[in-house]
């Protein structure tokens, strides 16, 4: 058994919120560099240049890359041998969000409920997904999710008869409908199988995979590649103003499903694909 104090969790989450908003992950930066080299559209090239400059300025001046610093999604993996002391886990995470958004001068973009829509003024509550895993580590990934890309995400319960062609069509339709709104070049997270909520969660988790790392199952890895080629053939391009690079990567997660089901969820992320992980 191992103990982790709630105050350590809060501090960690606060730091992750600030870092996710201000520092572009190295794999994403590398992908944007490659995208700029490959982009044939002069406007697209200029946009990718501005995005790389933006990342540099944000890091140097410790200001957010984007004004939409998002609602916080936390993916938490708790080793079953871990005991949290000095407070409850959810409140510790929320306290970290509160602290990080205040200290980091991040925008408070959360309203109390979808009908009254009153700003909570501290960017809480966060959306937290827990997973109990073997071991004694506590792993926290923070994804600040902006509305531009989240609003264009979609889920559909396909029929098994729709098959792989149906899955491809749904992913293409979703990215087409998103056009410029989700701030391409995108990272596309796809969850296939399970049930409705399982597919959605897998699509979200897929966004945190190191960029371009392929799924271990060869036929899924192949589908990722096929989708990347088809999506980049759409011509949407950086910021939707036309170009060769519409997506940086497609990551697919799969799960067993019912004999009569084929759930597909597509979670889009903008060019910055913000996420940061800490292991306690």
């Amino acid at each position: 058994m191992r103990t982790v104090d709630a105050s350590v969790i809060s501090e960690t989450v606060a730091g992750l919120c600030i870092e996710a908003a201000t520092v572009l992950e190295e794999d994403i930066e590398e992908a944007l560099h490659k995208a700029r080299d490959h982009e044939e559209s002069p406007v697209g090239k200029e946009i990718l240049t501005q995005l790389l400059q933006n990342a540099e300025i944000a890091k140097r001046n410790k200001i957010p890359m984007c004004q939409d610093t998002g609602i916080v999604v936390a993916l938490v993996e708790i080793g079953q041998e871990v005991v949290i002391t000095g407070g409850n886990l959810y409140e510790a995470i929320a306290q970290g969000v509160r602290k990080g958004y205040q200290k980091g001068y991040l925008r408070k973009s959360v309203v109390n409920n979808p009908i009254e829509r009153k700003n909570t003024n501290d960017n809480t509550p966060p959306v937290v997904h827990y997973k109990i895993v073997p071991g004694d580590a506590l792993r926290i990934t923070i994804l600040p999710k902006g509305a531009g890309s989240e609003n264009m995400s979609a889920l559909k319960m396909l029929k098994p008869a729709d098959g792989i062609d149906g899955v491809i069509k749904f992913v293409l339709d979703t990215v087409k409908a998103a056009g410029p709104n989700a701030c391409p070049p995108l990272t596309v997270g796809v969850g296939i199988g399970g049930t409705m909520e399982k597919a959605a969660l897998m699509a979200k988790e897929a966004l945190t995979r190191p960029l371009g790392q392929r799924h271990p199952l060869p036929f899924i890895a192949e589908l990722e590649q096929v989708l990347e080629e088809k999506l980049n053939a759409l011509g949407i391009g950086p910021m939707g103003l036309g170009g060769r690079i519409t997506v940086l990567a497609v990551h697919i997660e799969v799960f067993a499903t019912h004999i009569a089901s084929l759930p597909v969820a597509v979670n889009l992320n903008c060019h910055a694909c913000r996420h940061k992980t800490a292991v306690l």
Binding site: L51, N54, I63, C66, P180
Partner: peptide
């Protein structure tokens, strides 16, 4: 006019 979405730090300068 379109400005580059997500280039909030650059534009703030």
């Amino acid at each position: 006019f379109a400005a580059v979405g997500g280039a909030g730090a650059l534009l703030s300068q």
